[in-house]
Simulated assay, not measured.
Amino acid sequence: MGSLIAIRLRNAALMLVLATLLCFALVVSAPGNVAVLIAELRTPKATFEQIHKVEEELGLNRPLIVRYGRWLTGALEGDLGVSYKTGQNIGEALSSRLPITLTLVVGGACFATLLSFALGFMGALWPGRLGDIASRVLALLGASMPSFFVGALLIYGFAVQLRLFPSFGSEGLTSWVLPWMTIGFLPAAVLSRVVRVGLEEAMARPFALTATAKGLSRWAILFRHAFPTIAPTYVNALGAQGGAMVVGAIVVEPLYALKGVSDLFLQGVLFRDFMVVQACLLVFLTFFIILNLLVDIAIMFLDPKLRRQGAGS
């Protein structure tokens, strides 16, 4: 098992290096001259000398390998540069915004997990009945509606009409309910089908038929025997949906006026603030790599075949 984990850690480290190269290459290859943009932000109709001065200050006239080395060294030390638009230290901006994005994604993942289990087990307990049909309809609706549409419906229903929850901000637990529901509804729909199909297949296997013959209830068979068999598949699907929720945060954060990393990324794209875009991309890719690493390790412990393979190696 230790050797398998070491291989996953090595691969994750290589992916992180490739992620830094990708972030740097995307920003460097962006059209236009960053020095011209910054010079004109400082002084309209900037002269050639002013543009050249900006290039000297930011090191934009140095070889790419030197620029990449300086940026990577700074990133490892927590120095991700300065925003071209605001002049604010990007590392400080990210540190203040990262908890908001993490709260949104983690809360959305918890909501998606609970709702997917509820829908999946409801369909598995009463196959072909009203509960199963209702879970299928909800899953179909959830997978068909984009997050911004779900958010608009929730805001209109729960914030405008019923006035149960606030529609913006991040003050207090109640302000997070609608964002969690918005970002977690689509993943919950996908995961509920993973649970439903996995339990249905497990109930057709010999161990379930034997348990039924011994007189165990369907409820007991589902929870004691069938549910553990779908755990690796579910964790793998949950990891994929966790990555999708980070992308969904780009839509959800502006919708609820949440000042997270995704909101900062959108501002960087809007104002062509390439240093901010570069830093946010690095944060997103790092999150994806770490999430996949954790999912791989979790599956190793949940899957008996991988455990035996790890023990044999």
Rank of each mutant, 00 (worst) to 15 (best):
L119N: 01
G78E: 08
N89I: 03
T101M: 10
L26N: 14
A118V: 07
A46L: 06
F111G: 01
T73K: 12
T113I: 09
V54Q: 11
T47F: 03
L76V: 15
L80N: 03
G91K: 09
T103K: 12
L80Q: 01
E40N: 15
G107I: 10
A112E: 12
L114Q: 02
V28N: 04
V27F: 13
R62V: 06
A19R: 03
T73R: 06
E55M: 12
T20A: 15
F24V: 08
L41Q: 13
K85F: 00
A75Q: 12
L114T: 07
K53E: 09
K85N: 11
T101A: 06
N61F: 04
R97L: 06
G32I: 04
L114E: 02
E92A: 14
S95N: 11
T101C: 07
G69T: 01
Q88A: 14
Y84V: 15
K45L: 11
I38V: 05
A46N: 07
Y68N: 00
L80M: 14
V66L: 10
F111W: 05
L72Q: 05
P44R: 09
S116I: 06
R62A: 10
Y68P: 00
N33M: 03
A118R: 06
L41P: 00
V27L: 04
L80Y: 14
G108F: 07
A75S: 02
A93M: 13
I51A: 08
L102S: 05
L104K: 13
L37P: 01
T101V: 08
S95T: 09
L21V: 02
L58K: 03
L26D: 04
R62E: 13
L64A: 07
V36Q: 09
E40P: 00
L60Y: 08
G32A: 04
Y68C: 02
A93P: 05
Q88C: 04
E55T: 04
S83F: 04
R97S: 13
E56A: 07
A93S: 13
I100S: 11
V66H: 03
L119Q: 08
P63L: 07
E57W: 07
E56I: 14
L104D: 11
L58M: 14
S116D: 06
L102R: 08
R97M: 01
G91V: 02
R62C: 09
N89A: 11
F111P: 02
L21Y: 15
R97D: 12
Y84S: 04
V82G: 01
K53S: 13
V34Q: 14
L72R: 03
L37E: 08
E55D: 12
T113D: 01
V36W: 07
Q50M: 14
L58A: 10
A30P: 00
S95M: 13
V66E: 06
A75T: 14
L76C: 07
E40M: 01
Q88H: 08
L98S: 02
P44S: 11
T86A: 04
A112Q: 01
A112I: 11
N33E: 06
